[in-house]
Design a protein around this nucleic acid. Structure first.
Lengths: 148, 148
DNA sequence: TCTAGATTAATGCAATTGCATCAAATGTCA
DNA sequence: TGACATTTGATGCAATTGCATTAATCTAGA
């Protein structure tokens, strides 16, 4: 194979992947919204914060983990803070920085959203992918997609 | 396997897929922009119009093929028309509708963007996916992702 | 120490998106 | 035919995003 020019088959597969994911994500967003929940982006941030534990995360770390732009995180955190799901604290050692932590409200939202999120993903992902073998296969492929 | 509850492995794979794709798509958008090209969404519409041939497409058809919202297509077409890449014509038989067709400028933009798009995808997709076997594998998996 | 440069986060402004609504045309059915 | 529902596409308005700039702090080197 030519190293520099992906075949049409590769491009087609890529485009199909993008469309498939777009379809599933839009459906999930719609499901969440119609169940009265905030957008998926909120869930993503709260989930990272929960993973991070009591120390919380700096905005920079949220950016890196979720691959979001700086201004985007700044404003997302604004909304989450206003809604009471996270709290901003000045960083202990870096005067420029801050530390974002999950509040108990935020934790509660995560717990409330999870069943809706899970069942929505389930509803919109193809049936054959809903078993562990397919998941392993997908995970393996992803290892390669992420970086050769 | 439980039919109704995807395992954690499935959800993790899904989340990884979303992140991987997001990373690649953002990078491609950035590449295109810094090469002076319009967003990927323009390319998508123009590509569908080229596939559609001389009859063009109705906005409704663009919606269906690209999985976009109605208002979104309406405004995307506005911008494409203003930039001279497509033309709107009244539909011959349906007085409510219209027909969108690629102009020669639009065709030219597609041809200009394609090399940049291709090389950007190439740069950001993992190396091992850049061969036909991997593409076939991905395509097969997608068949299942799209609908069980 | 002092200064130039880098890092961290916020913000003003323009462009885009989402949502709801609207107008025009078509289709349906009595 | 004549009302009523449906389809097609545009648009006003609010929310979000992207881009560029700014302010504050930190770091490294003279």
């Amino acid at each position: 194979m030519n190293e520099d020019i992906p075949s049409e088959a590769v491009i087609d597969a890529w485009i199909n992947l993008v469309r498939a994911q777009h379809r599933v994500l839009s459906s999930v967003e719609t499901d969440l919204k119609s169940a009265g929940f905030p957008p998926l982006a909120w869930y993503d941030v709260l989930l990272e914060l929960r993973k991070a534990g009591d120390d919380g995360l700096r905005p920079l770390e949220i950016e890196a983990r979720l691959l979001l732009a700086q201004h985007s995180v700044s404003r997302l955190v604004d909304r989450l803070e206003k809604a009471g799901h996270v709290e901003r604290k000045a960083h202990e050692t870096d005067g420029r920085g801050q530390r974002i932590r999950l509040t108990s409200e935020g934790r509660g939202l995560l717990e409330q959203m999870w069943p809706a999120y899970r069942s929505s993903i389930n509803r919109h992902i193809g049936k054959k992918l809903r078993d562990d073998d397919a998941a392993k296969e997908l995970a393996a492929l992803l290892g390669r997609l992420l970086d050769g």
